[in-house]
Amino acid sequence: MSSSARRVLPGFGLSLGFTLAYLSLIVLIPLSAVFIKAAGLTYQEFLDAVTDPRVVASYKLSFGASLLAAAINAVFGLILAWGLVRYTFPGKKIVDALIDLPFALPTAVAGISLTALYAKNGWLGQILEPLGVKIAFGPAGVLVALIFIGLPFIVRTVQPILEDLDAEFEEAAASLGANRWQTFARVVFPTLLPALLTGFALAFARAVGEYGSVIFIAGNIPFVSEITPLMIITKLEQYDYRGATAVASVMLVVSFALLLIINVLQAWTSKRQGRTT
């Protein structure tokens, strides 16, 4: 007795087959090429390539700054989404459209304009630098660029959930004696959490892979402000293809592990809310 014969919804075999084939073609085959290429190295060569102190320093910056940027975006993106959903104000549509700009802008343009702003003679740089805050050409610059490109992910994932959130829940909390803060912390925030985690994962993934905007503002000082994608490009430019793929494979595995953790967390929080997906 085949189980597919008893399914009510048709097309299971077809759609699953298509999903797997498409995913293989677009995602898995290119990615596996990375591992195959890296497999050309001996174990010792691989180890040397991926544990080179300069490369290790770049992992720390790339993953650290990406996580931090995603976290900062989670806080401020939530506030932005809140403002856009809960209040009406003149020019709201324009502000709403502005949110998506980091999506559309070529990342190099973003990198150049951020550098121009935060450099010593830039608008913000000339104010911050005398105060001892150095943004451009350092790790802080990397963070600023990653915050810039990650913001839309949080706003766009939280916004629809916030729009659907019935006022009844907040009214119920208020009638039970909860103040605004308690209502937000105990009722609204937990409801938004799954969407917030999804946005966090997207912003993080985007930030880890970001190259264009970061290299302009980072200054690319070895051991200080080099990101991992830059290390890969550097190796490629030296025709060290296998070394580059070795570093890339480490990046892939770590990114995949982190994304998996976030997604499991997301699934767990939404399951608690009685959503099936």
Partner: peptide, 9 residues
């Protein structure tokens, strides 16, 4: 409330 408004989480 008519639709209960129980806190789902």
């Amino acid at each position: 409330f008519q639709h209960y408004a129980l806190f789902r989480h």
